[in-house]
Design a protein around this nucleic acid. Structure first.
Lengths: 164, 164
DNA sequence: CGCTTACTTCAGAAATTTGTGAAGTTAAGG
DNA sequence: CCTTAACTTCACAAATTTCTGAAGTAAGCG
């Protein structure tokens, strides 16, 4: 029988997926270490790993784990949990959380909008450039609102397909 | 009269907006030069500028303009036009085009999906990790479809507000 | 057909980012 | 308390990215 029931336990196979998926995230703009840490968590059985486990699996220093984890928690792609009665920490991907993080470029969009409003004021709303900026601003305002609706549709869709 | 009717013509004011907006784009992951070039085009009266105009306004070398423009046209945020009977080129932002580019992470999403499918197969669809990946994949598939709908709603919204 | 202008490519200098080891901080356990 | 384990911070070396000047290519014009 050549079909391995324990495919998921083969560290080689696991590593291949982790590195491959991380590479895609990197291409999309995520820094390398955060991408690798995130991919490792996503592919873990429980969705949680300790700092030591991450360091060992990815062959990186504790400092690198620390940096990656700080980055990921700042952008809300991961949460930190303290194991009760221990100073070991567990890091967890929570699906809901990171779907939101991914679409929730809200802070980013907000700053774009602010910059655009400033531009419209300073260049003059009736100038050709001002008009172009006004329409661009309208686009972002529309997107911002519509994405919220999209996430609700997703939640409904998921519940139907996977159960609450 | 202290109110300048020609606010948009003041190069200082223009430059301030360009650099500020470009900075936001950089924070969102766009390389610096492409961001600056794009912002300059967005804030130009006609929505088009020549290579020389860009170089002068942003104080960058022809080589930098060339690189930035190549980048932007590859990600469809800009189109190149040849001035008839001249070897001068004009670069243009076309709103429709770049709205699409912004939301059209289609190629990126497609590669994420591929990586996830591979992971599901190799780790096994019934393992805990496999199930997590399956749901993640479903999320992307949903998003991909819904974004298309969002862009149609935007077009309708824009037509209503700004006219076709 | 050759001159000139407009853009592109390329090698390399400069700036920035990344990841490490080492030192520092905090808190559990004896 | 003192020790030690778990993480964090920091300075710096290494790798990567960015932008420039210089050389190259191509197309309009005489």
């Amino acid at each position: 029988m050549t079909e391995p029931k324990e495919a998921g336990r083969d560290p080689e196979t696991l590593s291949r997926f982790v590195e491959h998926f991380a590479a895609q995230l990197v291409e999309a703009g995520l820094p390398r270490m955060p991408a690798r840490v995130f991919a490792a968590l996503l592919a873990s059985d429980t969705g949680t790993l300790t700092s030591a486990e991450l360091g060992e699996q990815l062959r990186i220093s504790p400092a690198a784990v620390s940096g990656a984890v700080r980055y990921l928690s700042q952008v809300h792609m991961l949460s930190r949990e303290r194991e009760p009665g221990s100073r070991r920490e567990r890091y967890r991907v929570h699906s809901d959380q990171w779907y939101e993080a991914l679409t929730n470029r809200e802070a980013v969009i907000k700053r774009w909008e602010d910059a655009l409003r400033e531009g419209i004021t300073s260049l003059g709303p009736t100038t050709p450039a001002g008009r172009r900026l006004t329409e661009t601003l309208a686009f972002f305002e529309f997107i911002e609102k519509d994405v919220a609706g999209m996430m609700e549709r997703w939640r409904a869709h998921r519940e139907e397909r996977f159960g609450a």
